[in-house]
Design a binder for these strands. Structure first.
Length: 174
DNA sequence: TAGGCCATCTGGTCCT
DNA sequence: AGGACCAGATGGCCTA
Protein backbone atom coordinates (compact mmCIF):
# COMPACT_ATOMS: atom_id res chain seq x y z
CA UNK A 1 0.00 0.00 0.00
CA UNK A 2 0.82 3.59 0.60
CA UNK A 3 4.20 4.28 2.19
CA UNK A 4 3.85 5.67 5.69
CA UNK A 5 5.75 8.85 4.84
CA UNK A 6 2.99 9.74 2.40
CA UNK A 7 0.22 9.43 4.93
CA UNK A 8 -0.82 12.82 6.33
CA UNK A 9 0.18 13.16 9.99
CA UNK A 10 -3.34 13.47 11.31
CA UNK A 11 -4.70 10.47 9.53
CA UNK A 12 -2.83 7.80 11.44
CA UNK A 13 -5.38 5.93 13.43
CA UNK A 14 -4.37 4.85 16.94
CA UNK A 15 -3.81 1.20 17.59
CA UNK A 16 -6.96 -0.41 18.92
CA UNK A 17 -7.01 -0.13 22.65
CA UNK A 18 -3.69 1.73 22.83
CA UNK A 19 -4.16 5.47 22.22
CA UNK A 20 -1.12 6.29 24.35
CA UNK A 21 1.32 4.82 21.82
CA UNK A 22 0.37 7.32 19.11
CA UNK A 23 3.26 9.82 19.60
CA UNK A 24 5.79 7.02 19.64
CA UNK A 25 4.34 5.51 16.50
CA UNK A 26 4.38 8.90 14.83
CA UNK A 27 8.02 9.41 15.74
CA UNK A 28 8.84 5.98 14.41
CA UNK A 29 7.00 6.74 11.21
CA UNK A 30 8.76 10.08 10.86
CA UNK A 31 12.10 8.35 11.31
CA UNK A 32 11.13 5.80 8.71
CA UNK A 33 9.98 8.50 6.31
CA UNK A 34 13.21 10.42 6.76
CA UNK A 35 15.18 7.28 6.11
CA UNK A 36 13.10 6.60 3.01
CA UNK A 37 13.61 10.16 1.83
CA UNK A 38 17.31 9.79 2.45
CA UNK A 39 17.53 6.59 0.44
CA UNK A 40 15.44 8.16 -2.31
CA UNK A 41 17.75 11.16 -2.49
CA UNK A 42 20.72 8.87 -2.27
CA UNK A 43 19.56 6.73 -5.18
CA UNK A 44 18.87 9.84 -7.27
CA UNK A 45 22.33 11.13 -6.45
CA UNK A 46 23.92 7.84 -7.40
CA UNK A 47 22.05 7.90 -10.71
CA UNK A 48 23.04 11.50 -11.32
CA UNK A 49 26.66 10.65 -10.55
CA UNK A 50 26.47 7.82 -13.02
CA UNK A 51 25.12 10.11 -15.74
CA UNK A 52 27.72 12.72 -14.96
CA UNK A 53 30.49 10.13 -15.18
CA UNK A 54 29.15 9.00 -18.54
CA UNK A 55 28.89 12.53 -19.77
CA UNK A 56 32.50 13.20 -18.87
CA UNK A 57 33.55 9.95 -20.52
CA UNK A 58 31.86 11.07 -23.72
CA UNK A 59 33.53 14.42 -23.45
CA UNK A 60 36.89 12.73 -22.99
CA UNK A 61 36.23 10.43 -25.92
CA UNK A 62 35.57 13.46 -28.10
CA UNK A 63 38.74 15.04 -26.82
CA UNK A 64 40.66 11.87 -27.64
CA UNK A 65 39.23 11.93 -31.16
CA UNK A 66 40.43 15.49 -31.46
CA UNK A 67 43.89 14.48 -30.21
CA UNK A 68 43.89 11.81 -32.85
CA UNK A 69 43.81 14.29 -35.71
CA UNK A 70 46.34 16.71 -34.25
CA UNK A 71 49.96 16.25 -35.22
CA UNK A 72 52.25 15.63 -32.27
CA UNK A 73 55.82 14.51 -32.33
CA UNK A 74 56.60 12.00 -31.07
CA UNK A 75 53.30 10.62 -32.15
CA UNK A 76 52.39 8.93 -28.91
CA UNK A 77 52.63 12.17 -26.99
CA UNK A 78 49.41 12.86 -25.18
CA UNK A 79 48.44 16.49 -24.99
CA UNK A 80 46.58 17.61 -21.93
CA UNK A 81 42.98 18.71 -22.32
CA UNK A 82 43.72 22.39 -22.34
CA UNK A 83 46.66 21.90 -24.68
CA UNK A 84 44.50 19.88 -27.04
CA UNK A 85 41.91 22.63 -27.25
CA UNK A 86 44.43 25.43 -27.70
CA UNK A 87 46.46 23.47 -30.17
CA UNK A 88 43.35 22.54 -32.16
CA UNK A 89 42.37 26.18 -32.27
CA UNK A 90 45.79 27.16 -33.58
CA UNK A 91 46.03 24.19 -35.89
CA UNK A 92 42.74 25.05 -37.53
CA UNK A 93 43.94 28.58 -37.92
CA UNK A 94 47.17 27.36 -39.52
CA UNK A 95 45.33 25.12 -41.95
CA UNK A 96 42.90 27.86 -42.87
CA UNK A 97 45.79 30.18 -43.49
CA UNK A 98 47.43 27.57 -45.67
CA UNK A 99 44.30 27.31 -47.74
CA UNK A 100 43.89 31.02 -47.97
CA UNK A 101 47.46 31.52 -49.11
CA UNK A 102 47.23 28.69 -51.57
CA UNK A 103 44.25 30.36 -53.17
CA UNK A 104 45.80 33.81 -53.20
CA UNK A 105 49.54 33.26 -53.52
CA UNK A 106 50.47 36.89 -53.73
CA UNK A 107 48.33 38.00 -50.92
CA UNK A 108 50.01 39.15 -47.79
CA UNK A 109 49.52 37.01 -44.73
CA UNK A 110 46.67 37.81 -42.40
CA UNK A 111 47.28 40.69 -40.08
CA UNK A 112 47.23 40.00 -36.41
CA UNK A 113 43.63 40.17 -35.24
CA UNK A 114 44.25 42.31 -32.25
CA UNK A 115 47.00 44.17 -30.48
CA UNK A 116 46.66 41.75 -27.64
CA UNK A 117 47.69 38.86 -29.79
CA UNK A 118 50.60 36.78 -28.67
CA UNK A 119 52.41 37.26 -31.93
CA UNK A 120 55.56 37.51 -29.89
CA UNK A 121 55.50 33.86 -29.22
CA UNK A 122 55.36 33.20 -32.93
CA UNK A 123 58.09 35.64 -33.73
CA UNK A 124 60.36 34.39 -31.02
CA UNK A 125 60.01 30.83 -32.18
CA UNK A 126 62.73 29.05 -34.12
CA UNK A 127 60.72 29.72 -37.25
CA UNK A 128 60.78 33.44 -36.70
CA UNK A 129 62.75 33.88 -39.87
CA UNK A 130 59.50 33.42 -41.71
CA UNK A 131 58.22 36.61 -43.21
CA UNK A 132 54.70 36.21 -42.03
CA UNK A 133 53.39 37.37 -38.73
CA UNK A 134 50.19 35.46 -38.43
CA UNK A 135 47.76 36.74 -35.93
CA UNK A 136 47.88 34.02 -33.44
CA UNK A 137 44.45 32.64 -32.74
CA UNK A 138 44.96 33.10 -29.06
CA UNK A 139 44.08 36.67 -29.49
CA UNK A 140 43.82 38.60 -26.31
CA UNK A 141 44.88 36.27 -23.57
CA UNK A 142 48.32 35.08 -22.71
CA UNK A 143 47.71 31.38 -22.43
CA UNK A 144 51.35 30.57 -22.50
CA UNK A 145 51.01 28.13 -25.35
CA UNK A 146 49.97 30.72 -27.82
CA UNK A 147 51.16 28.97 -30.92
CA UNK A 148 51.47 25.36 -31.90
CA UNK A 149 55.21 25.47 -31.79
CA UNK A 150 55.42 27.38 -28.55
CA UNK A 151 53.12 24.79 -27.09
CA UNK A 152 55.24 21.98 -28.38
CA UNK A 153 58.42 23.74 -27.39
CA UNK A 154 57.05 23.99 -23.89
CA UNK A 155 56.65 20.26 -23.93
CA UNK A 156 59.98 19.64 -25.65
CA UNK A 157 58.22 18.46 -28.75
CA UNK A 158 58.45 19.44 -32.34
CA UNK A 159 56.13 19.94 -35.25
CA UNK A 160 56.86 19.24 -38.86
CA UNK A 161 58.42 22.50 -39.86
CA UNK A 162 56.86 22.38 -43.30
CA UNK A 163 53.39 22.33 -41.97
CA UNK A 164 53.74 25.31 -39.73
CA UNK A 165 56.02 27.17 -42.02
CA UNK A 166 53.67 26.65 -44.90
CA UNK A 167 50.82 27.71 -42.73
CA UNK A 168 52.62 30.79 -41.64
CA UNK A 169 54.46 31.86 -44.71
CA UNK A 170 53.07 33.31 -47.91
CA UNK A 171 54.61 30.64 -50.05
CA UNK A 172 53.23 30.32 -53.52
CA UNK A 173 54.06 26.66 -53.95
CA UNK A 174 51.87 25.38 -51.18
C1' DT B 1 57.45 17.90 -1.64
C1' DA B 2 54.89 21.24 -4.41
C1' DG B 3 52.38 21.81 -8.43
C1' DG B 4 49.85 20.16 -12.45
C1' DC B 5 46.50 17.15 -14.32
C1' DC B 6 42.76 14.25 -13.90
C1' DA B 7 38.49 11.65 -12.36
C1' DT B 8 34.80 11.79 -9.48
C1' DC B 9 31.32 13.60 -6.43
C1' DT B 10 28.17 17.14 -5.40
C1' DG B 11 24.70 20.81 -5.36
C1' DG B 12 22.78 24.39 -8.14
C1' DT B 13 20.52 25.93 -12.35
C1' DC B 14 18.23 25.50 -16.61
C1' DC B 15 15.57 22.97 -19.93
C1' DT B 16 12.17 19.60 -21.67
C1' DA C 1 10.08 15.44 -12.27
C1' DG C 2 14.07 14.12 -14.35
C1' DG C 3 18.01 14.92 -17.24
C1' DA C 4 21.82 17.91 -18.95
C1' DC C 5 25.14 21.06 -17.92
C1' DC C 6 28.18 23.53 -14.99
C1' DA C 7 31.54 24.84 -11.51
C1' DG C 8 33.63 23.99 -7.03
C1' DA C 9 35.71 20.63 -3.90
C1' DT C 10 38.46 16.71 -3.08
C1' DG C 11 41.75 13.14 -3.44
C1' DG C 12 44.98 10.30 -6.26
C1' DC C 13 48.80 10.02 -9.37
C1' DC C 14 52.84 11.73 -11.58
C1' DT C 15 56.86 14.63 -12.38
C1' DA C 16 60.41 18.16 -11.67
Amino acid sequence: GRPCWLIPPGSLSPAPGDPSSLPRRRARCRARSEAALHTLRRSRRVKANDRERNRMHHLNAALDALRGVLPTFPEDTKLTKIETLRFAYNYIWALSETLRLARAPRERPAAPPSPGSDAGSWLSSPLSACASSPGSPTASEDYGYGSPESLLAARSLSLPGDLLCCARCPRADV
